[in-house]
Amino acid sequence: MSRFRKLIEQAQPDLVGQDLSRPFEELGVDSFDLMNLRVGLERELGEEISDTQWTEFTSLAQIVSYCESRDGDGPTLYGINQDTEDGYVRRFELNMPQMAIESLSESWLFKEIGASHWELLCAGLGQRSAALADEMGNRLYATFARVRHDATQPLSSFEEAEDVRLSGEISRFGGGMYISRFELESLAAQDKRIVSQMITSFSRRGGEGNTNLVKSQPQVAENSITDLAQPPQFVEEYRRIKKGTQDTLGLGGMTLQLTDAIETEFEYELNPYHDLNGVGLLYFAAYPIIADTCEAQHFNAHAASGDTRWELRWSTLARDIMYYANCDITDTIVYRLHSHRIEGGRLATTASLSRKSDGALMAKVFVVKAERL
């Protein structure tokens, strides 16, 4: 057996014995799987496979054949730079721009860690964000795959004028996947911190609009970001949930059951001034706010007279978002609440966001909130 085929089967055991000449879609191989496989194959081959060549492949058999034909021809390009400084520290005083509903703003938190991730990424690649392009000159965008934060105390415990410190670091798996970890900790109170993790890859527009984003990777002279020998568990869990092979998720001290059942659904009309980013894509930081807006709309509509508004009753303790697609400015988003459970002063919800235009799943949103005292 070709060692390249063996590598593919080791990475994805469900492909053992399969006919690899079948199209990717028939084998259940998606763009995230291909990105993982590309890293392993390039390392085994000892050279990068150009984007021009990669986009021509329609089956794994073609990839194996190409690797066998190139075996031994290229230089080894991958290694771990132990001397690279992949992190930084910042300090903030929490004031009105960082606050919302008398607590730390989750929208600000997403934007801040996203910008910090992007800053570390560009520094490691030695490029300004606007200059990042693939080998064909296509503009590249950081595409978020997963963002998760876990707090020791709910966001409502953070107060105005409180000093906090944000520290972070970044690593990568090959040239196309970047993983970061940030910690926001209070300097005024012990054991009050938020640990955030995220995964991004790179995409280019494959045509008009935002619904056809194609995975790619930047063409840079040097990449100083530490290269991991294998994808971390955080990445592997994302893959299992996307594939439907994991049916529970631990979050905020609770176990969430992953289900497709629907308790309710709402349509959300995009607000371009708030929801879209500078390049016209639905901003990754808008996804949790859209989900929370629809969640509150549902529970406020079913509240008894005199009940505290939903937004004032609950504060985020942990959130995990898995991103799958984007949308156009003309699209409507369908929010679906799949489950909710209140237990011991905590609320766990599972939800999803989809495009109304074609039904494509855009994200899964998992949240645990604590009841405000």
Rank of each mutant, 00 (worst) to 15 (best):
M1K: 03
R3K: 15
F4L: 01
R5Q: 15
K6T: 14
Q10S: 06
V16I: 13
G17V: 02
Q18T: 00
L20H: 02
R22P: 04
L27E: 06
G28Q: 03
S31H: 12
S31G: 05
F32A: 04
D33K: 03
V39W: 11
R43T: 00
G46R: 04
G46M: 06
E48W: 03
I49M: 09
I49F: 07
D51A: 03
E56W: 06
T58Q: 12
I63H: 03
S65R: 05
D71K: 04
D71Q: 10
D71L: 03
G72V: 06
T76F: 09
T76C: 07
N81Q: 03
D83M: 11
E85K: 11
D86A: 02
Y88W: 14
V89P: 01
F92V: 02
N95R: 15
L104F: 15
E106D: 15
F110W: 11
F110C: 01
K111H: 11
A115Q: 13
A115Y: 14
H117V: 01
H117M: 04
E119Q: 15
L120N: 11
Q127L: 09
A130S: 13
A130M: 12
L140K: 00
Y141Q: 11
A142W: 06
V147G: 06
Q153V: 09
P154A: 11
L155Q: 10
A161R: 05
E162S: 03
D163G: 03
S167G: 02
S167Y: 00
G168A: 05
F173L: 01
G175K: 13
G175T: 07
G175A: 08
G175E: 15
F182D: 09
E183D: 06
E183F: 00
L184R: 06
S186Q: 09
A189K: 13
A189V: 13
V195Q: 12
S196R: 05
S196H: 07
Q197A: 06
T200W: 14
S203G: 03
R204V: 09
R204N: 11
R205N: 10
G209C: 11
G209D: 15
N210S: 06
N212R: 07
Q217F: 12
P218W: 10
Q219E: 12
E222I: 04
V235I: 07
E237N: 14
I241W: 10
Q246G: 07
G250N: 08
G250D: 10
G252K: 03
M254P: 02
L256R: 01
A261T: 08
A261G: 05
I262K: 13
F266N: 00
Y268L: 03
L270Y: 15
V279K: 12
V279N: 14
A285G: 08
A285F: 08
Y287M: 04
D292R: 01
D292Q: 05
T293C: 05
C294A: 02
E295H: 04
Q297H: 12
Q297D: 13
Q297W: 12
H298F: 14
F299H: 09
A304E: 08
G306V: 02
T308E: 11
L312A: 08
L317A: 08
I321R: 05
M322I: 08
D328L: 09
D328H: 08
I329G: 00
D331H: 07
V334R: 14
R336Y: 14
H340T: 05
R346C: 04
L347M: 09
A348M: 04
T349R: 09
S352D: 15
L353H: 05
S354N: 13
S354I: 03
L361R: 11
L361H: 09
A363K: 08
V365E: 07
F366G: 00
K369N: 12
